[in-house]
């Protein structure tokens, strides 16, 4: 993997993560993350749309005049989301009902339009593909982490309803982490989503700070940071 690709991955997964740093797409992020599987389902759908829209935008970047680029982006994204919505209704109807309106709402996820405008419309197809994968994976990772956290605290389970996404064999994936009836209701309700996301962002910043500190003390005789 060359340096540029590695840098794009690092941006998407960590330094410029759409969920934790850019704070884009918060509406679906907060709304569907009641369980890990919901997070995974929406994460995969978003990843898929993001990769395809980055590809389509990068492929057409020479052909589309600057004045009409935004309507073209919106058209591309809306088409892809509709395709994903129809495919999910046909083959994953259980999950499609759980995620409900949040699949069509991927259209409004600013991450996708943001990446099209800021990255894909200026870079090669290869780089746009990697960026789509990296940003999508970064977003999905936050969805899954938040979903898993809220599910454990709120329901005491992990990977419940996995069969909706993965088929019947996945029923056995469900783990009971905490004994029944100890779930903290707050975690499942909307405030739990905000608190959980806040904690995740704080954790990310803490890790980033520690790492920055370490690099500083290794690389030079700099005085202790304030």
């Amino acid at each position: 993997m060359n340096d540029s690709a590695r840098e794009i991955w690092r941006q998407g997964l960590w330094d410029n993560n759409p969920g934790l740093v850019q704070l884009l797409g918060l509406c679906p992020l907060l709304a569907v993350t009641g369980t890990a599987i919901n997070g995974l389902g929406l994460g995969l759908a978003t990843l898929f749309v993001l990769v395809l829209s980055n590809l389509a935008v990068s492929l057409t970047r020479g052909l589309v005049q600057p004045e009409i680029r935004i309507p073209v982006f919106v058209l591309i994204i809306a088409t892809l989301v509709t395709v994903v919505d129809l495919v999910m209704q046909a083959w994953f109807s259980g999950l499609s009902r759980t995620l409900g309106i949040f699949i069509p709402l991927i259209v409004t996820n600013c991450t996708i339009l943001g990446r099209a405008e800021a990255f894909a419309s200026r870079r090669s197809v290869g780089e746009a593909l990697i960026d789509g994968l990296a940003q999508g994976a970064g977003f999905a990772a936050v969805l899954i982490a938040l979903g898993a956290g809220r599910e454990i605290v709120g329901h005491g389970t992990l990977m419940a309803d996995a069969h909706l996404l993965l088929g019947e064999w996945a029923r056995s994936l469900e783990l009971v982490v905490l004994p029944e009836q100890v779930g903290l209701l707050l975690a499942v309700l909307p405030p739990g989503a905000f608190i959980g996301l806040g904690l995740l962002i704080a954790l990310k910043n803490r890790i980033a700070n520690i790492r920055a500190e370490r690099t500083r003390s290794v690389s030079g005789p700099s005085p202790q940071a304030a």
């Binding site: 009409i68 073209v72 088409t79 129809l86």
Partner: peptide, 17 residues
């Protein structure tokens, strides 16, 4: 350009539908 892209999108959606 806009018309062409619109047509392509419509064709893709009809196919998937």
């Amino acid at each position: 350009t806009l018309g062409l892209i619109g047509l392509l999108a419509a064709a893709l959606l009809s196919g998937v539908h």
